[in-house]
Write a protein that binds this DNA or RNA. Sequence first.
DNA 1: GCGTAACCCTACGCACGAGTAGGTATGCTC
DNA 2: GAGCATACCTACTCGTGCGTAGGGTTACGC
Lengths: 194, 194
Amino acid sequence: MLDAAVKVFSRRGFHAASMDEIAEDAGISKPMVYAYLGTKEELFVACLHREGTRMMQAIAGAAAPDLPADERLWRGLKAFFGFVGAHRDGWAVLYRQARGEQPFAGELATMRARLVEVVAGMLDHALRAEGREIAAVDLEVVAYALVGATESLADWLADHPEAEPEKTATRMMNVAWLGAAQLLHGVTWRPPAD
Amino acid sequence: MLDAAVKVFSRRGFHAASMDEIAEDAGISKPMVYAYLGTKEELFVACLHREGTRMMQAIAGAAAPDLPADERLWRGLKAFFGFVGAHRDGWAVLYRQARGEQPFAGELATMRARLVEVVAGMLDHALRAEGREIAAVDLEVVAYALVGATESLADWLADHPEAEPEKTATRMMNVAWLGAAQLLHGVTWRPPAD
DNA sequence: GCGTAACCCTACGCACGAGTAGGTATGCTC
DNA sequence: GAGCATACCTACTCGTGCGTAGGGTTACGC
């Protein structure tokens, strides 16, 4: 039943989606939807939650914490893009939707925050292993940028049905890792003093 | 008057924003809004358009095409984050909103495509200067990732009122440029052959 | 066969908000 | 000052879609 909701939400968007259509698509009638899942908002949150959890599990399952940083990043990215590729609907819409609608932005922000934290933790771990350290804010922002770039490519992937998830992951790795590795080795870029 | 619209749209989101509230906020009455700007959709598009144009101008004005790639990127980023910092409302909401709502997603996609094209062109230019060349798709995807990362940091900036735009630009430069520079010099990351 | 209960449906009430009709005031022409 | 136009407002209509009330249907106990 959630599948039907995800499908309709993804096709129409949250507001344009009518409960009637969702019910019809699920093969039941509207009062049943209300009986099982509650209001439209609750239904949307349920969708968001399920997709989010699945995604997190897919990533967490792939990126074991005891691997070296580049290997973790690579596996995490591969899992992530694999997931998005397999659930284009779920991702593209729920995610893009949730971002804009105030009631859900918070929910989504929490999810993203968890992801950022994981990435930041990974970077921090790698840094310490090299005996280096940078401010927590910087770390967070870098992690944020990486997550953002990844989300952006996920959007790209969702819009290009013929694209291969793994190849996309490789491309992401090229941008992210080469940059991140430089940072980890203490190479930093500084603004010109003009 | 557009200012009022932007403000309300940003506070409430497109759907939750009522024309009454916009009118009230602008200090006029609803029929006037309709007389001057047309329907709600047209009004939103007008907002989107104005903000988008302003942003593009800010960037284009800063990143002259005859500068070296890193300089162009840096100036572009500085202008961009400066703009977002100064127009947090306009950005955060219009952008985040437009992304999710089908009728406007196209409009926004066009804007982003222009930006991606500019970035891709920049990278291509720098590559050719080094006598190298990579596939157009790869170029586009890298540019897409960079733009995505930048947008993501813009979101971060919009949510952190105390953060300094220029510092954010520097951070972005660190992630983007160090990675991009590696790519430009022919360093690429390849997936392990497991 | 009749009561009853679980289950699901059709058909509605109701609120909200986009867009408009029709009226009022202010200023300008002659 | 009468006629007219422009600028604006208040107060309405009407569609849409969420959430629900109340009725039908099937299965089971007795």
